[in-house]
Simulated scan of single mutants.
Amino acid sequence: MASRDDAIGIFDSGVGGLTVLHALLAALPREDLVYLGDTGRYPYGTKSAETVTRYSIENVDFLIAKGVKLLVVACNTASSVALAALAARYPVPVIGVIEPGARAAAARTRNGRVGVIGTEGTIASGAYTAALRALRPGLEIYTRPCPLLVALAEEGWVEGPIPRAVVETYLATLKKSGIDTLVLGCTHYPLLKALIAEAMGERVVLIDSAEETARAVAELLGGQGLERQRGAGSASFFVTDVPDRFVRIGQRFLGARLESAVRIER
């Protein structure tokens, strides 16, 4: 039986999910967070659904052994193909990053035209389109894979003429479509939010799936009486490959909060 003092478990294929952890730190400062980056098998976007589900189960087995009260799948690819299998397998609540973002977009759009950007794997899965249509069947949904944005975010190229040109090229067709709401459907993309907002213009609302997921976690914990009541929270980090690159890139997401990570053997 989970208790309110247990940690929240989070996993991603790499560093992108740290934007979700960052949002959780802000929304739930008393909570202990355990993050697993499956860096040894990154990226997930090119893998089959069966493989991603197997990897996800192995990741969650590790987190469950840490005694977590809730699981956050901070990976759009895993959220799109493995969430149901994880929810059926484990005795704690499981939250992905797609449903919270889709729910916020469906609520915020005024003209019924919503855009979604993400990796090729996430866009090809149709997960955001399905989630949005389930919430509001009449929505017009426009999607665009933007794979290069992940590399730009990880290398710290989040401002300047080169990333601006890439962002503008990717978003040109979405801008012409008349959308008024755009879902950032990859956990790396919040690092490029300023450039994306600039490219889309002030009339387009950006939906940050990391922030929306943190809100969903806070609501669920509050609703089930599982929010931690006292003390300062902590964050611990685990990876499946050498931690040096994870720490270096992760500090762009979290700064001094990420000092080290522990490698686990697979």
Rank of each mutant, 00 (worst) to 15 (best):
R4W: 07
D6Y: 14
D6W: 12
A7Q: 04
I8P: 12
V15K: 00
L18S: 11
L28W: 09
V34P: 01
G40K: 08
S48Q: 12
T53E: 11
N59H: 03
K66D: 09
K66Q: 15
N76P: 03
S80Q: 06
A87H: 03
P91S: 13
P91E: 07
P93V: 04
I95N: 13
I95Y: 13
R110D: 07
I117R: 05
T119A: 12
G121T: 01
G126R: 07
G138V: 02
T143S: 15
L148R: 13
L149G: 07
L149S: 04
L152Q: 06
P161C: 09
P163M: 09
V166Y: 15
A172F: 12
I179R: 11
L184W: 08
Y189N: 11
P190Q: 05
P190Y: 06
A197D: 12
A199I: 01
I207W: 05
S209T: 15
A214G: 06
A216H: 01
E219A: 14
L221D: 09
G223S: 14
G225W: 12
L226K: 07
R228N: 09
A232E: 14
S234H: 13
V239D: 04
G250R: 05
R252F: 11
R252M: 13
L258K: 06
S260T: 07
V262C: 09
V262E: 15
